[in-house]
Design a binder for these strands. Structure first.
Lengths: 198, 198
DNA sequence: AAGAATTTGGTAGTAACTACCATATGACTG
DNA sequence: CAGTCATATGGTAGTTACTACCAAATTCTT
């Protein structure tokens, strides 16, 4: 790796870290881009080259976790067992996020307080699900393929969201693996238990 | 209804209509709020009182369709059959949107071209699903209720999204009812068919 | 060491949105 | 009907995210 790339990575990381510092201390809305740039000792112009929007600063980690795992999924052989592959996909996303629990928690905290952040988070999830749908459509054959693919992608994303949400809400992360297991079972068995109430 | 409310409704409608006119003609990004205000012959200040953000101008109809139906769902008796109620909920959302097909199509067109719009659309959907999850949680009993509720709400929303998406993509809306039927079946049977691919 | 490519910081400008105030308009009371 | 109150409106000034562009600095190549 050349010196150029190294410095670029370093600057990028520095900006991101300082941004999280300021966001957690003073909130997303009360921190200006100029303050972040000043804290990272770069010009605002440079900051915008690395992070096109203020929201990207917060959501990049989640986006990378999701789409990184999706890239892995796309690289799987065409005849791979789909339930197996989807289960592994979910596990990869969760593992990736688990590598930086504080950041995930902070992202969800901030998103809960800031409409524009929750909007962009929802958008990331939306795009991810769409791309997974496309990939699944290509791997399926038979009747009403798009429909099945969309539902399967939606359920996969649902499971991830539910597990992460539960994990963020409960400080002790012991139940996560169990919850994930339970979710996998549902994905495989294919059933959402919706009992007639009463 | 007093004269005051009447004029308010009229102004609101006028602004919304002019906004859609300009958006469809010149695109969302190329239309400024001031232009919309000028077209509706009101001050920008007034426009912002009715629509807090530019995106609201576009998404209000979808939001109303979704949350209007959700209000109905909440009003259902506590011992109502859940699959039945969810099916009716979906039908109500679809009927509501079907009352103004052009607008729905335009919303999806614009959202496809404008990141900030797709983000806010995703956010509306996200909030709706969360509220449905809360409502379902209250109506369910048993083990891992939140989990079941979240999955059921997610699937419900998925079905709506898929049907609307298909409906928007296909100009002739004849297959919609059929697709909705098929979706209902899945919701009831509780199974997402995910075959092992070859 | 010189030149090419890329990264950086700064300047100027646009447009969404907020806070605030004076004015105008519909609603209500004597 | 006149007067008063409540509310809706339009305008002004300011903040801030973001874009386009240019000159200087830094890294890479030969």
């Amino acid at each position: 790796m050349g010196l150029r790339e190294l410095k670029r990575e370093r600057t990028r990381r520095l900006i991101s870290d300082k941004a999280f510092e300021l966001f957690t201390d003073h909130g997303f809305g009360r921190t200006t881009v100029e303050q972040i740039a000043a804290a990272a000792e770069v010009g605002p112009s440079t900051l915008y080259r690395y992070f096109p929007t203020k929201e990207t600063l917060v959501l990049e980690f989640v986006e990378d976790s999701l789409f990184g795992a999706l890239d892995w999924f796309r690289a799987q052989p065409a005849d791979a067992d789909l339930p197996d592959a989807l289960q592994a996909l979910i596990e990869r996303v969760l593992d990736e996020m688990d590598s930086n629990p504080d950041r995930v928690r902070t992202v969800y905290d901030l998103a809960g307080q800031t409409p524009s952040l929750s909007a962009h988070l929802a958008d990331v999830i939306w795009r991810w699900r769409n791309e997974l749908t496309i990939e699944l459509t290509a791997r399926l054959a038979g009747d009403s393929v798009e429909f099945t693919a969309a539902l399967a992608a939606g359920t996969t994303m649902n499971i991830i969201e539910i597990v992460v949400q539960t994990w963020v809400d409960n400080p002790d992360g012991t139940q996560v693996k169990q919850l994930a297991q339970e979710a996998m079972g549902l994905l495989r068995g294919g059933g959402i238990p919706l009992p007639t109430s009463q």
